[in-house]
Amino acid sequence: MTATRALEVNDPALLSFAEEVGERDSGLVAVAGGRTRWGVGGALDPAARVLTAPTGIVDYVPDEMTVRVRAGTTVAELHAALAEQGQRTGLPERGGTVGGAVAVGENSMFVLGRGRVREAVLQVRYVSDQGRIITGGGPTVKNVTGFDIPRLMVGALGTLGCLAEFILRTNPIPALTRWLVSDNVDPFAILDTVLQPGAILWDGRQTWVQLEGHPPGVEAEQRRLEAIGSFTETKGPPETPTHRWSLKPSELADAAQFGDQPWLASIGVGTVWASQPQPHRPLDPGVQALTDRVSEQFDPANRLNPGRRPGVSNPTGGS
């Protein structure tokens, strides 16, 4: 069977990135984005050459609801370009790059409304431990062609490949977005009241709810909310504390575990931003062994982002 389509990547930006990463004998390499979550996954081996990923939006066709973007582009730049066409992605906006957001894999506070980072990536291109450009996934919004390599790259901290380019799914920005705050509502009752809130955040005293959609829908949801508490319109939630916890949604009710300092919990999701780190959660030994085998397969020389270990919680903080 002869290939009739050009499958080889010929984007000069990606080719030169691949050259920088180099072959297996080219030593340790790491990729830096905005360094906004630089401490996640353990300290980088100081011997590693630190590279930056190529930048720029390559191709954006709003009608297809997809965008091809290089990994070094900032999320802010991407979202600004998308917003001009009334679209956005599920990536978090915290000042970093698209590649960094995918490598770290931490979701935005809008999981309920915009989905998770892992759901946004349709195709990934990365540079392998051997300096080759690898493509996983595909350009369309729906695709089951081959193994789901894009999913594997989300949250892998660049240890399986140096992230170079993505095709991301975009979503329309709703006509109306409104934040409401209440100090007398049961935060856990909101999910049963509102069909699809953008976010529900609770700090132990106050509850913030983001409503999105067509104006008549938002108005109707607000009326339903006002039946279970008193709400006022607000600009948005407070600053999130430094440390990130991952809990089951049902575990959020036990607020004492977050300590005396300020915290903010994402109701219905289970993320908590707290002033102290989450107690260590070791991986199950079987999962750890499988993780090790995946790492061994993708980077036997352990040269890509050395020192990082997916699943190791953030020891130094830093947001």
């Binding site: 931490e106 789901d148 999913r151 594997l152 949250g155 993320t271 997916p310």
Partner: peptide, 19 residues
């Protein structure tokens, strides 16, 4: 037998569930 993924917000480690 291993448990891939989890009910918590962001299960630690690689997304082996997704793979």
């Amino acid at each position: 037998a291993v448990m891939l993924g989890g009910v918590d917000a962001e299960p630690a480690g690689l997304d082996l569930r997704g793979a």
